[in-house]
Structure formats: structure tokens, C-alpha cells
Design a binder for these strands. Structure first.
Lengths: 326, 326
DNA sequence: TTGTACGCGTTATCAG
DNA sequence: CTGATAACGCGTACAA
């Protein structure tokens, strides 16, 4: 920047102003600075800028996994909003582990991110403390956290699961099964199981433990689950509330020649585009994944830039997409 | 850090050393510093550290899209390696646009990233110049770039496409069609088309323009393509070299009751787990997506940390997975 | 092994 | 509208 200042015949302070707030500088000088910048190929040092101004234009995002395509729309949504406003995105995956999340939060604090987005809603104690002490704006997105760190943009996993079960019951199914990912380290799975139970209670149906399964992620898991539930537990409808389990089950039915929904009805949780194209297309929920990313990024920036100071809590809801599989 | 130094009764320099290179400091002092850090909840400021030491521990990654699940395994691979070595990842998507890529490169340079990973192998002129001037380590991953900026970790799109066409020919197919994404802004598509043509030439088959299609991404595109190629151009095998086109086509065949491969054989380019579970499972290529991410990250770090100064060029190859769809 | 002085490249602040 | 000066929080280089 010193070189630019010399070349333009002004002080570094004027260069700084010409670049960050062009209107505060005379047209003539602005022109000269721009010329000098172009001639020299000057690239400002945001590290120095952030250090000096005590605020960075970087947002941190921690998801359980970067491999799972589930998070892609959210990340894309975040990315869009940030880019439009000149912010950068730092991402990391915590592998569904609380301690790793805590370590990543520390690393992001060390980078002096301006705000943090967390998919998980369960956190190590230390993490909550650190964030509280740092006073950093935070948005959680995986679930309408009952005890949020700060802001939340999400949908209710429990309500969504409950609604789908009620929907299946309305269609006439009575032995409705639920398959989720392991609930041990996963708030979302737990909430979906709670929604399932709530619906059964509402409907006066007894809980049959054989109709609730936890399976690891992956297509083969779904295939295995459908066989166990149909042959072993006489399920007439299966609600796969996680990952791509429903897709695996659907293919397994096809391989075995089981009519869907004749032999068993299928429903999924996430609206992968794929589900609508399968034969038959699969009943599922519409969750506003990309919108969650966009809104979360937006309220974070609103807070960072002082346009708001509320502890926002946004429920973006969901919607049932009824298709031929049920 | 000053507070920590006071609390521990040492100078800030000693604190700095105790944290960055604990062995250079006496055990007694190390203990006192650690205690003070814990008591105060001190989080080092990497911005200041990087500014002072002129090197950051942040890597930049630019992909065409964050939404496309194709990039997920690569990003995950990158993330693993970086995290193990204490580096952070900054990501952005350029939306398949060269100018946006150039803008992002500038933004990353401004953040003083220690290295850059680019999926694209075509870049705006300005971008190449900036990178050359910055002398930043760069890895390109989308293709074995013939004219790389710096290092490359990838596979040959042309060879892969060529190999698949030869494979289909060996199986007896003679009217082999190719479907790619629009090649205008996409080096990979162009390379795959070149491979297709090379194979035809090798086999002494004439090029039939009706057997080469460019389609936008998405399942419906694949569905549309299979209909046009089978009914309009009597293709007996279709090689879908991009996105999820093959999956869309497969479902369309199912909807129409077209036997695969009886009526038409299908082959895909990427090894989505899904392809192996469909009925029938789909012939495709095995591309080392995650490995590309890991290796790319590794050679970047090797260079950054001075363990190597070669202009590495790694071809990770591919493999044909023959399945029942052909 | 520990400490001192200085500089990294910006921006905030205040004076002109 | 423009400039001088002093931080920002750390690491490098040397000295003790």
C-alpha cells in the first residue's frame, strides 16, 4: 500500500479510504489511486485490516460431515449470501463428534471469524463457554434448538416426523415403522423419534419396539431395514427419517419384486431430487435446506453489521409431498 | 497475551514460545503459562500471528459449485488432511464462471491464504497473472491440465471417456452415444468429448452428430436425452459423461418399460454409490475423488512447509466398473 | 533459557 | 477532504 500511495502521490491513509470508502475521497484522487493500484497489481492485506479494525469478513461453518450431500444445499445457500456481501466462508466438518466441534470452534475463534454457523445443536460444555465469553454471533441450523446458544434458523424435526406419521395414518396405514440414524450423537434423530412417538400416542397406537430401527447411513442400510421390517415385523408403511435410507429400501423392494406401496409403503424425510424421479416416486418432506443457509447467513450478517441485535429464532417449517409410494 | 504473560510472570515472548514451540521453554514456565492460558481463557490471534510471520495456516478452495454432490468427496478429503495438520479451509464456488473465479482468487490472495486449490483448469488471463505474481502454491484438480498453473492432481477425462467407449464397443455395441454437460465453460466436458471422438476414430466408426448431445445438469435432462437418442437416433448404448444424467435416464427407461440393456445399454461417468444399487446396476468409472482431495492437500502442504519444491503432476487414473446395465 | 526492540500492513482518531 | 500518529497482537532477530 505504501507503493500505491507513493505512485499516486498521497498518504497511505488516503489510499485506504479510496479503497474502502471511495465516496469519502475526491474524484481526482480516487482516479489516481485506482490507476496506481492497477499499475502495481496491489492486493490489500485483509489480515492487517482485520487486525487493525478488530473485525474480519470471514464466517465459520461447522457441519457434521462434508461428504453427506445433505449439507450441500445449505452450504451453497450460505455461500451465495456471503459472496454477495463480500464475506468469505471457512468450513470444517466435526465428524459428528462434540469434542472435535469444540476444537474447531477454538480454531475459528483464533482466526477471529466474525460469526459462526453450527449445524449441531448439542455442544461440549467448553464450547458453549468459549462462545459466550467471546460474545460471537452464532446461528444453529440443524434443529429448532430448545436451548440455543444464540440465534436459530431451522425447522422442527419432531414436528416434521410427527406430521408424516399422522399423514401415513390418514392414508390408512396402521403398522407404521420408523428408521433413523443412530440417535446417540444425533439430536435430529432423537427429535424425529420423539415426533414418531408423539404421533402414535395421539393416534392411540401402541409402540412396538420391532417397528423402530436405528441404522447406520448408506443405501445398504435402507435395504436391510426394509427386509427386517416387512418380513420380521409386518410393517405396512416405513418412514425412513434419515440419510438415503429410503432410496436403498426402494431399490431393495424393486429387486425383490415387492410392490410399493402394495406390499409396503415408503416415505422419506429429505427432499432429494431423486425421490421424485424414482418409480414409483417417493412421498417425503420438503425441507428448506438452501433457504436455511441463506437466512442463517443473512441474520448473521445483520447482527454483525449492527442492523439487528435480536436473538432471532426462525422456524422455516416443512411440507409433506405426497407421492405414489404411499 | 499480555494478560497471560503477567499472570504467569513472564514476558509475552515467552508465552508465545511456550505455545508455539513448548520444547524451547523450561517445564516450570511451560506449566505456569498453560495454567494462565486456561485461567484467562486466552485464544491466540492467528491474524496477528500470520501478519507478523508472513504465513497463514489457511488454504483456499474454489469449486464450480458447492451444491453438486460430485465435489463433496474431494472437499471431505481435503478437509481431513488439513485438519490433521492444523490448517483451515476457506471455500467458495465460482458458479462455473471464469470471471467469478478470478474475483475469488483475488479475495483469497487478500486473505493471504498459504495455498490454493482450483477445480477448474481454465482461468481468466488476469487470474493466471495474479497467481504467478503472488508466487502462491496452487493445485488444480479437475483435469490433468496440459498447461497447469503449478501442480496438478487429477485423472485424464479424455482417457477415461475413451476407455469407456472402447469398453462398450468390446461388449458389442456399435451405435454408441455420448451425453455431456454443455462444453462451453467446461474443460472436463470438452475433454470427454475429445476422448469419445478419439475412440471412434480408433475403432473406425463414423461420427454421427445425432449421437452427441449436450444437456444441462439434472435428472430430467438425462430422461430427455435417453428418449431422443433411442427413438431419434437408434443408439444401442449411451454413455452419460456428466452429473446425474445417467440416473435420470435409467429411471426414464424404467418408466417406459425399456429393458436395460436390452433396448439400450447405459453407462455413467462418476461412481455415485447409487449407481451400484439401481436395478440393474449401472456400468461406470471409478474416479478417485476423495483421494484427489487428500493428495492435493498433501502436496500443497508439502510445498508450503518446504518439504518439496517440485511442480508435481499426479495422475491418479481411473477404472471401469462393468455392471449389468451394459 | 529468557527478554527487548522492532516491524508486519492496515485502520481509528484526531488535527489541519 | 487529507494527513500524521498510534495502535492492533503477534513473531523475528538479536542480545542478555
Amino acid at each position: 500500500m505504501r507503493d500505491v500511495a507513493q505512485q499516486a502521490g498521497v498518504s497511505t491513509m488516503t489510499v485506504s479510504r479510496a479503497l474502502s470508502d471511495p465516496e469519502k475521497v475526491s474524484p481526482e484522487i480516487r482516479r489516481r489511486v485506482e490507476a496506481a493500484v492497477a499499475a502495481i497489481g496491489y492486493v490489500p492485506n485483509r489480515l492487517a485490516g482485520s487486525l487493525s479494525s478488530q473485525n474480519s469478513r470471514v464466517i465459520g461453518l461447522i457441519v457434521p460431515s462434508l461428504e453427506n450431500s445433505l449439507f450441500a444445499p445449505t452450504i451453497q445457500g450460505v455461500s451465495e449470501v456471503l459472496r454477495r456481501q463480500g464475506y468469505q466462508l471457512m468450513v470444517a466438518d466435526c465428524g459428528y463428534r462434540e469434542e472435535d466441534e469444540a476444537a474447531l470452534i477454538t480454531a475459528f475463534l483464533a482466526q477471529r471469524v466474525a460469526g459462526l454457523m453450527l449445524h449441531n445443536t448439542r455442544h461440549a460444555d467448553g464450547a458453549r463457554q468459549m462462545l459466550a465469553r467471546a460474545g460471537l454471533p452464532v446461528v444453529e441450523t440443524g434443529e429448532m434448538a430448545p436451548d440455543p446458544i444464540d440465534m436459530v434458523v431451522s425447522y422442527s424435526n419432531e414436528d416434521a416426523a410427527r406430521a408424516m406419521v399422522l399423514h401415513l395414518h390418514r392414508l390408512g396405514y396402521r403398522r407404521i415403522a420408523l428408521v433413523t440414524l443412530p440417535a446417540a450423537n444425533n439430536d435430529r434423530s432423537r427429535a424425529r423419534q420423539a415426533g414418531f412417538r408423539a404421533a402414535l400416542a395421539e393416534l392411540g397406537l401402541a409402540e412396538d419396539p420391532r417397528l423402530m430401527l436405528e441404522m447406520p447411513p448408506g443405501l445398504p442400510s435402507g435395504a436391510e431395514a426394509v427386509v427386517r421390517l416387512v418380513e420380521g415385523a409386518q410393517a405396512d408403511a416405513i418412514f425412513f427419517a434419515g440419510d438415503v435410507l429410503a432410496i436403498g429400501a426402494h431399490f431393495e423392494c424393486q429387486r425383490r419384486g415387492w410392490a410399493v406401496p402394495g406390499r409396503v409403503a415408503l416415505a422419506a424425510f429429505d427432499n432429494f431430487e431423486l425421490l421424485g424421479q424414482m418409480v414409483p416416486p417417493v412421498t417425503t418432506l420438503r425441507l428448506p435446506r438452501a433457504e436455511i443457509g441463506r437466512r442463517a447467513a443473512q441474520i448473521l450478517l445483520d447482527r454483525i453489521q449492527g442492523r439487528s441485535d435480536e436473538k432471532v429464532r426462525i422456524d422455516l417449517r416443512f411440507e409433506i409431498i405426497q407421492r405414489a409410494s404411499s
